[in-house]
Computed example of a mutant assay.
Amino acid sequence: MTVVRRESAYQQSLDWMRGRIAEGDWKVGERIPTEPELMTLLGVGRNTVREAIKTLTSTGILEIRRGSGTFVRARTDIGGLLGRQVAVAEMLNVFEVRRALETEAVRLACGRRTDDDLRSLSALLDERQRTADEASRFADADLAFHLGVVEAAHNPVLSDLFAGILEPTRATYDFTEGVHPPSLTTDDHHAVVDAIAARDEDAAVRAALGYLDRVLDAVHQASRP
């Protein structure tokens, strides 16, 4: 059990939780321990734990999902604030980078994908479909699919670059909710996998641009007053 001094229980609990996230013990996208578990780990009361979680939630590091728990959204305050409050102009800048990376990824994936990659992409498509009616779960599932596409390119530098824009990319799902239903790009996502399976670079890029351009349209639409 990790015990903190009473006179600074809140601050020490907060610092300890920040440390677990910053060091990768609790990874982005993962659920953190429950309140009772944290109380046992830290040796503090429920109010102290809740205040620490509240602080980390307010800066975007954590995200509370009703019925599911509390999840890590970003590793740092800066990443969290970017993920939660990224300006439209910055979001569009990030999107341009994503568009460039992902279109190149699907092209490379056509020549480098393995049978395991295809099985993985198929499973990720299924999960995307299963979560279509649950906004938060769908966002995670859809982003996992796009990560899978990038991984199928088998270029570690490309994967690292894409990982570097995950936080602001995740923010676009919340931003466009209500104007960009999952069904809008279902066919494009299936077409990307079919094209990668057929090793058809032109078709893969066309399909990727299909869903990417629809996301861009949704960002513009959501930003209108």
Results as ranks from 00 to 15, higher is better:
3 V>L: 13
4 V>L: 03
8 S>E: 15
12 Q>C: 06
13 S>W: 08
18 R>F: 09
21 I>E: 02
26 W>D: 03
26 W>L: 04
32 I>C: 04
37 E>K: 02
37 E>C: 10
39 M>A: 08
41 L>D: 10
42 L>C: 04
44 V>G: 02
44 V>F: 12
45 G>R: 15
46 R>M: 09
47 N>V: 04
51 E>D: 07
51 E>V: 03
52 A>H: 09
53 I>M: 08
54 K>F: 15
56 L>F: 11
61 I>T: 03
61 I>L: 01
64 I>N: 10
66 R>V: 13
66 R>W: 12
68 S>Y: 12
74 A>N: 00
74 A>H: 00
75 R>I: 11
76 T>A: 09
78 I>H: 14
81 L>K: 13
82 L>R: 06
84 R>T: 02
86 V>F: 00
90 E>K: 11
90 E>Y: 08
93 N>W: 11
93 N>Y: 14
96 E>P: 12
97 V>Q: 11
99 R>I: 05
99 R>G: 06
101 L>V: 00
103 T>N: 09
105 A>F: 02
106 V>M: 05
107 R>L: 04
112 R>G: 07
112 R>M: 07
115 D>N: 05
115 D>R: 08
119 R>P: 01
122 S>C: 08
125 L>K: 14
126 D>T: 11
126 D>A: 14
127 E>C: 02
130 R>H: 11
131 T>K: 05
131 T>M: 12
136 S>M: 14
136 S>K: 06
138 F>E: 01
141 A>F: 03
142 D>K: 02
143 L>R: 02
145 F>Y: 07
146 H>P: 01
149 V>F: 02
149 V>I: 08
156 P>N: 01
157 V>E: 09
158 L>G: 01
160 D>W: 08
161 L>M: 05
161 L>K: 00
164 G>Q: 04
164 G>F: 10
170 R>M: 12
171 A>I: 01
173 Y>L: 08
175 F>K: 06
178 G>V: 09
179 V>Q: 08
180 H>Y: 12
180 H>A: 07
183 S>C: 04
187 D>A: 11
188 D>V: 07
189 H>K: 00
191 A>H: 05
192 V>E: 00
194 D>H: 15
196 I>A: 00
210 G>V: 05
210 G>K: 07
213 D>Y: 10
215 V>D: 07
216 L>G: 07
217 D>T: 08
219 V>D: 06
221 Q>G: 12
223 S>P: 01
224 R>Q: 11
